[in-house]
């Protein structure tokens, strides 16, 4: 039974929940895996650090919460600091290079940084930074097939923004392909 716990963290408004939703949807609807998404609710999630958790498995997910993520996507420094101590020993940390300053994790984590916000700005809409991040995540982790992620993006973003978002996804994915296998190890 292969199970992967993923945490996505950032601040409210960055599209953290949508990012988690697309990962879960890609895994469970478009790539024949099981995926359970849970998210933080409440006032603490509005504007300040928020997080979404996805558990992906080849069998039914029985315990729905993430306890020690094998993959963490950090889109803000606050979110990163709040959750970095939960990372599993061999965690893959995917982070927004301009927004997160890496610190000592006390564990071996493979880290992959991307200036997702700048790439999104170059595409004309900063709001798609989460989708740039998603593409990047797809390439560096290889957890979910590219096509599955693309289909999930296409069917989850607002009508009329599909092209922009798919473009953002591809930019992130390609950036990731160049970096894949070249992770820096942070201890």
């Amino acid at each position: 039974m292969a199970t992967t716990e993923i945490r996505i963290t950032g601040f409210g408004g960055q599209g953290i929940i949508l990012c988690g939703y697309i990962i879960g949807k890609a895994a469970s609807i478009y790539s024949n895996q099981h995926a359970t998404l849970t998210q933080s609710f409440g006032p603490e999630a509005r504007g300040s650090a928020c997080s979404a958790q996805v558990v992906i498995s080849d069998t039914r997910v029985l315990y729905p919460y993430v306890t020690a993520p094998k993959v963490m996507l950090a889109l803000s420094h606050d979110g990163y600091v709040t959750h970095k101590d939960t990372m599993a020993g061999d965690c893959i940390l995917v982070y927004e290079k301009d927004l997160v300053r890496l610190e000592d994790h006390g564990i071996t984590a493979r880290t992959f940084g991307i200036p997702a916000t700048r790439i999104a700005e170059d595409l004309g809409r900063k709001i798609v930074l989460n989708i740039v991040m998603l593409g990047f995540f797809g390439a560096v982790t290889g957890l979910i097939p590219r096509d599955a992620l693309r289909q999930a993006v296409e069917t989850s973003v607002p009508v009329g923004t599909e092209e922009l978002n798919l473009n953002a996804f591809d930019k992130g994915y390609e950036y990731g392909l160049k970096l894949a296998g070249k992770a820096e190890s942070k201890v």
């Binding site: 939703y21 879960g24 359970t36 998404l37 849970t38 997910v61 729905p64």
Partner: peptide, 10 residues
């Protein structure tokens, strides 16, 4: 309950 209500799955 809240866990099932707010949990997203296929």
């Amino acid at each position: 309950d809240e866990c099932v209500g707010h949990m997203t799955e296929k």
